[in-house]
Design a binder for these strands. Structure first.
Lengths: 243, 243
DNA sequence: CGTCAAGGCTGCTCTGGATCAGTCGCGCAA
DNA sequence: TTGCGCGACTGATCCAGAGCAGCCTTGACG
């Protein structure tokens, strides 16, 4: 029963050995099952008293808007990801989250989280760890934007996404299905949509990756990894640190 | 006695109302006082079993190196900041931290943290909150790199630094003392040192900010805030969320 | 079947910021 | 006192990537 709770539990168990109480509390987070259409804005930047969600099915993205209307996508969320944690921890949310595809998720209220932490304290440590893992990805993304060329940026992005998807059992070494448009990539990588197209074409012509028709295919995984300077197991974890 | 524990305690109390037990556990984190020379590398990317530190005095910066030798500074740490948390939570550190000036800090071992969390569970929530606040800054930094021009990037960076320093009582609305070189700024903002110099000159000529001789002066705070699209109170918190 | 909107794709021009190649001033050590 | 090295500062040149403009394909809809 508890084992079927899905990828979040599995993810957290990689860090702490969760007790029965912890698991039960975690199960409460899954009571409010909701679904959203593609394009629906689930969390609003500047909004107050928002919920968080645990993604069961579909893709989302978190982003910020600038005064001039530009947007920067901070991260994409895939099944098993906790989304909008910061919008609970802070009084007002500092970012927005939008459904990229149709989504199935469990809504988690601020009170669920805060009560849950007092009832099952190790859960707080586990969530801290998960949040740190997310932060590590954001940092990697930051390095991407600050210091890498458009091409290595794209390569690194696709490899990281592939690695994350593999961890939750979607897609493998050969590639993955990807619902993102070139506009999404542009907003995430700080490029123009036009340039994204050129970069993708170039990577394809080099025989490294193909991104077409909603499918990413790694044509030469080793070459791509080398180009991107990607560490293939930076997301891995070898078993609980905290028992 | 406990009140003199410094800025970290004050910061965490802004989120949770800490009990006596919590405060006592937190006090244990301050047992190993250390100091480091400017330039000393306190945490090594890829290193295992590293400590974390609570900064009491001086400035540090966290960064990552790329294969080609470039570096991207992710964030600067100032007194009251917790540094290297991720190097404890993960088996191997994903970033390095270097002292910018001479530093006074308390060394916190992985076991201190992990034991501390089981003894004083609310501390885990508090640290989660502090980590989320740091993540929010990294995200802001990411938006900076992805979507803003060199000039607004610089403006935003200086304003944010000023706001952070003001929160811990260093510097005020008129400016602050700043030990960073233009090379540090370049590595943080994804620019070349040469261009940093030009941008600073331009901002000075516009009468917005002056950064000279280790001092940042806000000559026209309103104008600068407007240029940067900076929200002056995005770091604020109005009192404990969790009682 | 025709229209219309998204999204993919491409060529051209122009510019922001990198790179190179220095000078200048200062603090420090021999 | 004389180098010497670091950091601030400047001008000239170059190029990655943005902006613009337009065309093609696909799929939804009346």
């Amino acid at each position: 029963m508890l084992m079927t709770q899905g990828p979040l539990t599995r993810k957290l168990s990689a860090f702490v050995a969760l007790s029965g109480d912890d698991l039960e509390t975690l199960a409460r987070f899954h009571r409010r099952r909701r679904s959203f259409q593609a394009g629906h804005q689930m969390i609003h930047e500047g909004g107050k008293n928002q919920s968080a969600f645990i993604l069961a099915e579909g893709w989302a993205c978190s982003y910020k808007l600038l005064p001039d209307g530009e947007r920067q996508i901070v991260d994409f969320q895939i099944p098993g990801d906790f989304l909008g944690l910061r919008s609970i921890l802070f009084r007002t949310s500092d970012h927005s989250i939008e459904a990229v595809t149709r989504i199935e998720a469990s809504e988690v209220l601020a009170s669920d989280i805060l009560d849950g932490f007092s009832r099952a304290p190790r859960l707080a440590s586990a969530v801290l760890w998960a949040a740190s893992r997310d932060e590590a990805m954001v940092v990697e993304h930051l390095v991407n934007l600050g210091r890498r060329s458009a091409e290595t940026r794209m390569a690194h992005f696709l490899l990281e996404l592939g690695a994350r998807l593999k961890l939750v059992g979607i897609g493998g070494l050969s590639g993955f299905d990807c619902p993102l448009t070139q506009y999404h990539l542009a907003d995430a990588l700080g490029l123009s949509a036009v340039h994204v197209n050129r970069v993708l074409r170039h990577l394809r012509e080099e025989g490294l990756v193909t991104f077409q028709k909603g499918r990413v295919s790694f044509d030469n995984l080793a070459g791509l990894t080398e180009l991107a300077g990607f560490d293939p197991d930076y997301l891995d974890q070898d078993g609980p640190l905290l028992r």
